[in-house]
């Protein structure tokens, strides 16, 4: 864990410095005898800086050299994150129906190595259930995008 902890400590220190730098923009002292909008952020930034230095020192001395947290299936993790990010990025353009379907299909097929038919069936079923329950029953305006244009072209468009 040692290397992981040290990296984390350094990242946190960097963040703390950045945050202190940002809070500098606001009044740090009292304004008309009331704490300015930069006071709490400044205090927090300094506190985080101190805590992360302590954490770093502790990790340097004490942390066991055992298994790092990135031991494990990092490849699967990255694939999963890329697919999920793809889902979020494409939701506006593709619309919920298509992007949800593709996300489910890709993840089930290529990450979890399920069979094609199962993957297609499951992702289609999830998409349908979520679309009907959130969009139709609860009126949540899920993004329509390309999915909707295709549905309308097929004469299946429903709702407004």
């Amino acid at each position: 864990m040692r290397r992981g902890e040290i990296v984390c400590g350094i990242l946190m220190m960097g963040f703390a410095v950045f945050y202190i730098y940002l809070s500098w923009e606001f009044p740090i002292g009292f304004v008309k005898r009331v704490p300015g909008s930069g006071m709490l952020p400044f205090i927090l930034g300094i506190t985080l800086l101190l805590l992360s230095v302590l954490y770093l020192l502790r990790s340097w001395k004490k942390a066991p050299k055992g298994e790092e947290f990135w031991a494990g299936d990092i490849k699967s993790l990255v694939i999963c994150l890329i697919f999920y990010l793809g889902f979020i990025v494409s939701i506006r353009g593709l619309g919920f129906i298509l992007s949800s379907f593709f996300f489910g299909l890709m993840t089930l097929r290529f990450l979890f190595k399920m069979k094609w038919p199962t993957s297609i069936f499951c992702s289609a079923a999830f998409t349908l259930i979520l679309q009907v329950s959130f969009y139709n029953l609860l009126g949540v305006p899920l993004p329509k995008g390309l999915s909707w244009k295709i549905l309308s072209a097929l004469g299946l468009g429903y709702g407004g």
């Binding site: 999920y84 889902f87 979020i88 919920f96 949800s100 996300f103 489910g104 993840t107 089930l108 990450l111 979890f112 399920m114 499951c122 992702s123 999830f126 979520l130 959130f134 949540v140 899920l142």
Partner: peptide
């Protein structure tokens, strides 16, 4: 688990 994982990711997103 794969099904639950997809379920969690999709429900969380929606």
């Amino acid at each position: 688990f794969p099904i639950i994982a997809i379920l969690v990711l999709e429900i969380s997103l929606v």
